[in-house]
């Protein structure tokens, strides 16, 4: 099965994957469930990674990925090919995760503090990657790096954290980030600039 590859500039032509996505979407809209199954198989890894990076918990990320694709299924009849399917999908991911975070914050009724978050993240730290077992000294280095980066990322605002993850980790182009977050290109550039600067400052403070 083809996997989603990093896409181009997002401005002009469509990548092969995107054309293929749209064909699958058309088939879904014509009543072909197998096409939906293939769309899910193709995008589930990236969707899961995006969610996992935001919620930092494997089980929650898995469940939220299910929720995302259920929403996709329901909304597919209304999808119009004016947008890239992947962008539309990631926007749903973003909305689902933010709804979940909001509800979780409300449910915690102020009991959610940094310590609770940190503990849950440590528990979820048994990441599905890397594929090989690191040597003890490497593992310690990795753990220290993870803690250092996550601690700095925790101190960013949600808006700054989102642009950093979408750009630096997911490798999205500026236009796609703007579409996913439903903000202007100018706002994307500004947020990226200040988020990067802030992150550099936070990390240099920790050394």
């Amino acid at each position: 099965m083809a996997r989603l590859s990093p896409e181009g500039d997002g401005g002009g032509g469509q990548s092969e994957d995107e054309v293929s996505d749209l064909k699958l979407v058309e088939k879904c809209q014509a009543g072909d469930y197998r096409a939906f199954d293939e769309l899910v198989t193709r995008h589930r890894g990236k969707v899961y990674a995006m969610i996992q990076n935001m919620v930092r918990n494997d089980a929650d990320a898995w469940d939220l990925s299910q929720e995302v694709f259920i929403k996709v299924w329901k909304a597919l009849p209304r999808f119009e090919a004016r947008a890239k399917f992947s962008t539309w999908l990631y926007r749903i991911v973003h909305n689902v995760v933010y709804d979940w975070m909001r509800k979780r914050k409300l449910a915690s009724d102020g009991e959610l503090n940094d310590e609770t978050l940190r503990e849950s993240r440590i528990a979820a730290g048994s990441r599905t990657t890397p594929g090989r077992d690191a040597r003890p000294d490497e593992a310690l280095d990795n753990e220290e790096l993870r803690e250092r980066i996550e601690s700095a990322m925790d101190k960013l605002s949600e808006e700054h954290k989102a642009v950093i993850l979408l750009r630096e980790v997911q490798g999205m182009d500026y236009k796609e980030i703007a579409d996913v977050l439903e903000i202007s290109m100018g706002t994307v550039m500004s947020r990226l600039f200040y988020a990067r600067k802030k992150l550099q400052t936070l990390l240099s403070d920790e050394i």
């Binding site: 899961y48 990657t129 980790v169």
Partner: peptide
């Protein structure tokens, strides 16, 4: 460092069960 720490897009765990 960010790419070292955060997941970029491996397949979801238990993919068949997920489907």
């Amino acid at each position: 460092d960010l790419r070292e720490v955060y997941t970029q897009g491996d397949d979801i765990p238990y993919g068949d069960f997920f489907q």
